[in-house]
Amino acid sequence: MVIEAEENRRDFLILATGAVGAAGTAAACWPFVRSWSPTADVLAQATTEVDVSAIAEGQMITVPWQGKPVFILHRNKEQIEMARQADSASLPDPAVDKDRVKNPEYLVLLALCTHLGCVPQPIGTGDFGGFLCPCHGSHYDTSGRIRQGPAPRNLEVPFYVFKDDSTVIIGKPV
């Protein structure tokens, strides 16, 4: 004999038990998922201090920051001029050169192609006077903006500050 009230009661209990069980299992998964995120010691290596006074005009250096390469280019007049002239051009990812530098003489770029994370080749290798990514042929200009190729965005400008005229600190302290 089926008692309808009993049936509904049982359905409710099964559903409620199932819901609590599913929520509990999901919550128990969280620590495991979270264990893959960067560890405290990785996060602690957040900043890099660089002396830029030794870089000759028109030349660049590559420094590691958080395990990633950062280009610091000491731009000469010509390179600054090229970057500014392109401000008005129709760009794939529009940006104005002065918004991409703190001091127009120093261009600081995260040297990872926004396509698939290869390191572009040094200044002067690409068309537009800038950087060429060898993996899939993206060309960046003297402001690190994408001009041609498959990369969707400009090279990222990391957070940095000038501690004094010749010292740059890349990254935000955690």
Binding site: W36, S37, P38, T39, V42, Q66, G67, K68
Partner: peptide
Amino acid sequence: VIWIWGGFSVGDATLNR
């Protein structure tokens, strides 16, 4: 991708997992 790497780039944590 940072979660997969366990860092800000491919590194020791990535290799281990």
